[in-house]
């Protein structure tokens, strides 16, 4: 029996090599591209789900939005260079989240009271936008077991654009230009949204203390 296995093992390996030989160059390229796409989607799917969940407030709906975003991303942007994938994927997700909010507002105007639209486009004083990096911040003053819940609650209270700017810049680590691409706005708007998000989060977390 063991002797048979020693004979079969090299035979099966040779069969696999033969199978690979039969794959055309196009098929090899397609398989490689699929592997790269799979790896990329695996790397972003959990954060994308949490970002969508923080925006829409329901996990099931967030899962649907992530699935739609994955499908649309693959259809429209899979052929782009891999370096461009993160901002493009979040651009698609941002578009789906924005559409979800529009549909929700059409379904029930009363939801506008819960998600008021605010004008975040106006410029702010650049001196006022400077941050104190040495400040320990509100999360350090929260008990560790409550910090996650408090952060979630504070993020849910943010206007959509401020929340997207914070999550894409601070959590996903996109630079300002890529965040602007993902949010379909100018870099100045990204800075403004982020500044307001940081201030709002600080205020909300300090109030939660």
């Amino acid at each position: 029996m063991a002797h048979d296995q020693r004979i079969l093992a090299p035979t099966m390996a040779a069969q696999r090599v033969t199978d690979l030989d039969w794959m055309s160059r196009d098929e090899v390229q397609a398989a490689t591209a699929k592997n790269h796409l799979d790896r990329f989607l695996r790397s972003v799917e959990r954060r994308a789900l949490r970002i969508a969940e923080l925006s829409v407030g329901h996990r099931d709906e967030a899962l649907d939005l992530v699935q739609e975003a994955m499908l649309a991303f693959v259809r429209n942007y899979a052929g782009k260079p891999e370096a461009e994938w993160p901002p493009l994927f979040y651009r698609v997700l941002d578009s789906r989240v924005t559409d979800w909010h529009r549909r929700s507002q059409v379904r029930g105007r009363w939801l506008a009271v819960l998600w008021p639209t605010r004008d975040d486009e106006e410029d702010t004083d650049p001196i006022a936008m400077a941050v104190d990096a040495a400040e320990t911040g509100p999360l350090a003053r929260l008990a560790s077991e409550n910090a996650g819940e408090a952060l979630d609650a504070a993020l849910r209270q943010l206007p959509l654009r401020q929340r997207q700017a914070f999550l894409l810049r601070i959590w996903e680590g996109l630079d300002v230009a890529d965040t602007a691409t993902a949010m379909r706005c100018g870099e100045g708007s990204v800075k403004t949204h982020l500044w307001r998000a940081l201030n709002a989060l600080r205020t909300a977390l300090e109030a939660h203390r």
């Binding site: 941050v131 400040e135 911040g137 999550l167």
Partner: peptide
């Protein structure tokens, strides 16, 4: 993608990032 700390951002954002990252590890 693992973001590098931005010296222009306040320190507490690093803690916020850690909390958010931890939340992705507890998905059912």
């Amino acid at each position: 993608m693992k973001p590098t700390p931005d010296p222009n951002q306040p320190n507490w954002t690093e803690q916020a990032r850690s909390l958010l990252e931890a939340s992705t590890q507890s998905l059912d």
